[in-house]
Design a protein around this nucleic acid. Structure first.
Lengths: 346, 346
DNA sequence: CTGTTAGCGCTTTCAC
DNA sequence: GTGAAAGCGCTAACAG
């Protein structure tokens, strides 16, 4: 009130003079570094700060300490996929728990934007960067991103030095197929998608391995490709189901294809799961529970991957735990009602 | 190379001495404020900066200029809704276009986290805050958020001074109902949800108004409530469709309920759209196109709302355009295949 | 046209 | 135990 009547928010200096102490003392108290300061002084500082509505300017502190408590989150596309939310949420929650804030940016896949965005992030002194793709893929990381600790989320890089986390597609497919087998199925088809993304190849592998592990011969005729949407699933399933010696169970590349398969089955008057069992992948929250019957499927661990990515990043920022580089996150089975024992007569 | 061999990133001072000029000159050149500086000098600065890989420390600049080119994005929950992505994307794109970065935080609806989060944001000198809810609702905004320009996204506040943007629910419902009417329907049911959220009430209003505008008497018997999921839609539709004088068209609170209605129709051997026309709401990208037949529905303008919110925020930060306070964003009709003329005999 | 100088608000030796 | 003073990296008067 006395000397420093001025515009703008209260500064530490104001608190100091209000409490009748120096800035050093205020800083010490407010940052819990007040080792030997009497409780009485401490309280006076706290009171003054509260009375003046003091809020430290983090920018100034960060400039001085050369930290920022901020991490960058770069993603290629965020909206076009329903999965994005959970990943971001996981990342946020983990960051928050570590007292960091997240600066988000999305590049829409444009390399020019990407370069610019990285610069903006780095200029703001982010302590690390999470580089997220919105579906499991191989990406090339701009050199600039490597200036700070970096982890890849739902993506991998040819540069194996960059830590990454992706879903365990192979394991998920293995479990999906095994689930069908455990119900007694022996003729199990795989509806794969045509695109050559890691998910496609690895899910096919998992399918094969599960078959092998159970001494069921792999039959190339039982895997048929289609586009990864409902229409593709419909067509692929149709091709398989009209055959005389049709499969009794279908493992589908994703839930959309599974929904297509269900449609094909209905048209052929095959009941699910009595005549045909179905397992999907993705566990789309808006479709899997609502197919008829509700779809048994594999859950993509997006939230967990988001958490892992920033926890790992923070470990690296803190200089700890450089052990695990490439994490494959387990995809849990979500049992609903589309799987049963195979029909007694095929 | 000469005097300042030191650790850490290059600073402006380094560029200055490398180019043989003062920091002022460097600053001027790099910020495009070099009014009368000879091209030759300018080039020398640019070259030196490039050679040294200089990247300005935005924190330092921001401290000095008392700006931050950063806006805060606070949301209650991000993952649990499929809509969130588009809103964030819109916000991001608009922010990026204005040269701002977004600091995101989500509170999971916890007021304690919220208070803390707001402090963190404000401490980092965000220039404004977008406060987003993940579905259209009334919220109470913490006082701290009002210290900087603020706009509400997909939410409204009792405090009418706070600008906000929400979907035009009433208008959407009006158009949905009118669409049915324009196809010749006269007996149109409304499947409403039981929760008393703004969306529910306003969609009911829009439905009534469209009826009135077309001289169709409102019939309370034709509006039946259910929970807002597939099961609720199924039950509500069932109640209506078993009646002898059943409606020929149904406007549903949302796509999930519409999917339930479709299920009920199938069970009753009513074909869509021959025997029954259906209009949904939300245009869920993963369900609406894939119902059988594909669902005609109203699109929620999430991306556009995100854009509007940050554009508005930036206007306010810049001290311009304080005119529009409450925006209701139009919900466009997405025509697919679930609407046709009513059957000739009811 | 360009350099000198004084801070932005904070943390942190180093004295007393 | 607490204060004075230096300085994080930058911008912006103000001279010259």
């Amino acid at each position: 009130m006395t000397s420093s009547d001025r515009y703008g928010p209260t500064r530490m200096k104001d608190v100091a003079s209000a409490a009748g102490v120096s800035m050093t003392t205020v800083s010490l108290v407010l940052n819990d570094k007040a080792v030997g300061i009497p409780a009485e002084t401490k309280q006076r500082v706290l009171d003054a700060a509260a009375a003046l509505g003091y809020r430290p300017n983090a920018l100034a502190a960060n400039l001085r300490t050369r930290t920022s408590d901020t991490i960058g989150f770069v993603s290629d596309t965020i909206a076009t996929t329903p999965y994005a939310g959970a990943m971001i949420q996981g990342a946020q929650d983990a960051a928050w728990k570590a007292g960091k804030l997240i600066l988000t940016i999305n590049t829409n896949g444009d390399p020019a934007v990407e370069a610019y965005a990285l610069n903006a992030l780095l200029g703001r002194q982010v302590e690390g960067i999470v580089y997220a793709a919105m579906y499991h893929q191989m990406i090339e990381v701009p050199a600039a991103a490597k200036e700070v600790p970096l982890v890849l989320l739902d993506a991998r890089s040819a540069d194996s030095e960059i830590p990454s986390v992706v879903p365990d597609e192979r394991g998920g497919a293995y479990e999906a197929t095994s689930h069908l087998i455990s119900h007694g199925h022996k003729r199990i088809g795989f509806l794969k998608n045509t695109a050559s993304v890691p998910a496609a190849n690895e899910r096919l592998e998992g399918y094969r391995e599960a078959l092998e592990a159970n001494a069921i011969a792999f039959d190339g005729e039982l895997v048929v490709a289609g586009d990864s949407g409902l229409a593709g699933g419909y067509a692929a399933a149709m091709a398989l189901l009209v055959e005389p010696h049709r499969p009794t169970g279908l493992f589908c590349f994703n839930d959309a294809m599974a929904a297509g398969a269900a449609r094909a089955a209905h048209e052929l008057n095959l009941r699910i799961p009595d005549d045909l069992s179905l397992v999907g992948f993705d566990n789309l929250e808006l479709v899997a529970p609502f197919t008829n019957p509700p779809l048994t499927t594999m859950q993509l661990p997006h939230y967990e991957m988001g958490v892992w990515a920033v926890e790992q990043l923070i470990n690296r920022i803190d200089g700890e735990d450089f052990s695990v580089f490439h994490q494959r996150m387990q995809c849990p089975l979500v049992e609903r009602a589309s799987v049963g024992p195979p029909p007694t007569r095929t």
